[in-house]
Amino acid sequence: MVRKKNNRLTLKERIQIETLLKENKSKSYIAKTLNRSRSTITREVNKWVQTEKDKYSTELANWNAKDDYLNKRNTDKISIHKKLRV
């Protein structure tokens, strides 16, 4: 498997995940289709689908991923880690 340069899932990939999940395709099949690791797909789907009633939503997943990324970039390590505050 060729390693992708960009580790984050794109909106296009998330749309494909949602479409293939609606077609009842396995996570392994989705990973092969997207040329991604099976664990990447599993983590993404399990993050948003907690129960049988939940459905994977591309818009929600993409918006939250962008929000998490932006918030992660704005936190400083000094306020997070006790050893650095001393």
Rank of each mutant, 00 (worst) to 15 (best):
K22P: 00
K72L: 14
K53G: 06
N46F: 07
N24A: 06
S79Y: 13
N64D: 15
M1K: 12
T40M: 08
K55C: 06
E52N: 10
N64I: 12
E23A: 06
R8F: 11
W48Y: 13
Q16E: 14
L84S: 07
L84I: 11
R73N: 12
W48M: 08
I15Y: 04
S37E: 14
N74K: 11
K4R: 14
N62L: 14
L34Y: 00
K83P: 10
R43D: 06
L9T: 00
N46Q: 07
K83G: 14
K32N: 07
K25H: 05
E52C: 07
R8K: 15
R36A: 01
T42N: 06
D67T: 09
E13L: 01
I80N: 06
R36T: 03
S79M: 12
S26Q: 04
K83M: 13
W63F: 13
T42F: 03
N46V: 09
A31Q: 02
R8W: 15
S26K: 08
R43Y: 05
I78L: 06
E13D: 05
A31V: 02
N74Y: 07
K32S: 12
S39M: 14
E52K: 10
K72T: 10
K53I: 15
Y56H: 03
N46T: 07
K27H: 08
S28M: 11
I17A: 00
N24K: 04
N35H: 15
K82W: 10
W48A: 08
E44M: 02
L21M: 04
K83H: 13
T10F: 02
V45Q: 01
Q16H: 13
A31N: 02
L60Q: 11
I41F: 01
S28V: 08
T10Q: 03
T58P: 00
K83D: 10
E59Y: 09
A65T: 13
I17F: 01
I41C: 02
N64S: 14
R73M: 12
D67E: 15
R36H: 03
S37N: 13
A61N: 01
L11S: 07
N35L: 15
D54R: 04
E44C: 02
K22I: 00
R14G: 01
N6Y: 11
Y69M: 12
R38D: 08
D68L: 11
I78Q: 05
K27I: 05
D54F: 04
K83W: 14
S57M: 10
T33E: 06
T10K: 02
N7M: 12
S28T: 07
R85W: 14
A61K: 00
S39H: 12
S57Q: 09
E13W: 00
S26F: 04
V45Y: 01
K5M: 12
A31M: 03
E44W: 02
E23D: 09
K5G: 11
I41T: 01
T19C: 04
S39I: 14
N6I: 09
T51Q: 07
E18H: 02
V49P: 00
N64M: 11
D76Y: 13
V49F: 02
D54K: 04
N46M: 08
K25A: 03
V2M: 09
V49N: 00
N64G: 13
I41N: 01
T10N: 03
K12E: 11
E52S: 09
D67G: 13
I17V: 04
T33Q: 06
N62D: 09
